[in-house]
Every structure is written in structure tokens, then in C-alpha cells.
Design a protein around this nucleic acid. Structure first.
Lengths: 146, 146
DNA sequence: CGAATGTCAGATAAACTGATATGT
DNA sequence: CACATATCAGTTTATCTGACATTC
């Protein structure tokens, strides 16, 4: 018996299908990013920094859905590879603005292209209007617990 | 500046929104299941067993998106709490059929109700037709990489 | 043989808790 | 003062990788 047949009607649960989709996407992203020596969290951090230069460690952590401590470890890796820089002084509070280096920007361009291709492959199953609806409805769901 | 304002246009990425929704849902589920002393993976295993009694460790692992080894550890916990039983003999190959105990079924009933309430809270933001569409489109996306 | 399974051991990742210091 | 931040240390939890034996 195939696995799909063993799942009962669990594929009618929004939670299960959401997990399934997120799991599949993450796997595909990991496979693509491996050749660039980037984890998904590292990629997400670079993407966040590209769109919002100067984010702090804590802001990046929230944006990537990890703890401050985990993001600090991620940033050490990115800093040692000189993909990002961290301001030694804080313009406000204790926050130290982080920015992409030229090398980081170049690597991100490659990573973004790869990830975009993966996302397009996933969305290829549904038509254009459905894609926008999916995005809107997921956004609504995501903010249900805030 | 709020976090939402620091995200750039990342909320237009299907991958980001998918992660955001899955992260929010998992957090809400964890909060609900904690009072029943169940992790999300434990709950998922019980749910799978309820719908398909007699699943093997490997089948459960695939259904819960973890490795065989991880599921083995999860099952040890469930076995020690007598929520599930494992057949000592295999009807085919090496697979050992696992089933819910009466206690496991009772606990699952509570857990299912709690999780269903969480899912409904998440879906409350969108209308009925959108809910079915969301389920269908997510299912389509989930199978894009298989 | 190949493929799937169960299971053991070690390694890794990510999170947590708790603490300390600094800045608004 | 409360609050957010950065950062350090130690611990726990969950997961993974690798290996091996078993069974069809």
C-alpha cells in the first residue's frame, strides 16, 4: 500500500497540508542552496538584510522565526565568511545594524534566483489568480494568532 | 518601526508566508498540547495511528515528516506511557504494526478537539469557499516536488 | 541481489534557561 | 523603573548521519 493510502483523511486537515507543503518546499530549497554552501536560515537572513539593510540581530531573529541566540550564531557564520558586516557602534539602544557586503550581495543574487525557481516550480501547479489568492489567504492565516 | 515594516516585500514570497503560517500554527498547537503533555510530533503520530491502525515505524515516520530514527524515539515515549502498543511479531518483512491503546484513544480525542479548535481559529479569517480552495491549492503545491 | 525495515551509536542543530551588561 | 537589546554559558531536546542485521 502506498503512503498516501495510509494517511486516512489527514490530507483534509489544513494543519497537515500546511506542514506537508512547508516541508516539501524546505527540502527543495535546501537542495538548491547546498551548492552555494548556504542553509535556509542563512539565506533568509541575507534576503531580509537585502530588503531592509541595517536590521539588528533581534529583528533578524524575529523575521527568520528563530531566537536571538540562534540568529547570533547564524550571523557569526555569515560574518566570518564576510557576507555581512556589523556596525561596531549602535545608533540607537544596543542594536548593531547589520548590512550585506558586496560579496554577500553577489551570493544572494545567485541564491535568490535558485529559490525563486523553486517557488515557481511549486506554484506552477495552480493558475495565476489562485497564486495570488493563496498568498493572501496564507497571509491572513499567518496573522490569526498575533 | 514595527517588524512588519522592516520585512521589505518579503511577505509577497510564497515561501516566506508559508513558513510564517506553519510557524504560527505550530506555536499555537504546542501551546494547546502542552497541557496534555504531548508534543506536536507525538500528536501527529497518534492521529495517524487513529486513522490507519497498524502502521509501522517507517510509515509513521514518513507521515510525520521525520526520520525512522526520530520516530523510533517518539514511539518509545508513547509506548512507555502505554498510549500505543507494538506487535511483537511482524506479519510481513520487519515491520511491526503499532496501534492505539484505549488510553491513547481517549487522550487523542482531547488532543484532536484542541487542535481542531486551533485550526478553526486560523481559518476563521477566510470564508468557506476560500478554505476549501486553500486546502486544494496547498495540496497541489505540496506534491510539486515528488 | 536490491529494497525496505528496525535498531544501535554518535554527531549536530536548534532551542531553552539563566545570567549579565547596556542603552532609552 | 520597565523594557529591549546584545552576549555569554550550560543544558536539553530533536534531529540527523552512518552503520548493521533482517526479511521479502
Amino acid at each position: 500500500m502506498s503512503d498516501a493510502e495510509t494517511l486516512g483523511a489527514l490530507d483534509e486537515s489544513i494543519g497537515y497540508v500546511l506542514k506537508q507543503a512547508a516541508f516539501a518546499l524546505r527540502g527543495a530549497m535546501e537542495a538548491e542552496l547546498r551548492s552555494l554552501d548556504l542553509t535556509v536560515t542563512q539565506y533568509a537572513s541575507l534576503e531580509l538584510l537585502s530588503r531592509s539593510p541595517g536590521l539588528s540581530n533581534a529583528q533578524l531573529a524575529r523575521g527568520a522565526f528563530v531566537t536571538r541566540q540562534s540568529m547570533d550564531a547564524v550571523l557569526r557564520g555569515l560574518l566570518s565568511r564576510k557576507l555581512v558586516t556589523r556596525s561596531p557602534t549602535s545608533p540607537y539602544g544596543r542594536a548593531l545594524p547589520i548590512e550585506l557586503t558586496t560579496v554577500g550581495q553577489a551570493l544572494l543574487r545567485q541564491a535568490s534566483a535558485a529559490v525563486l525557481a523553486v517557488e515557481r516550480r511549486m506554484l506552477a501547479r495552480i493558475n495565476k489568480e489562485s497564486q495570488q489568492r493563496l498568498l493572501d489567504d496564507l497571509t491572513a492565516c499567518a496573522t490569526a494568532f498575533t
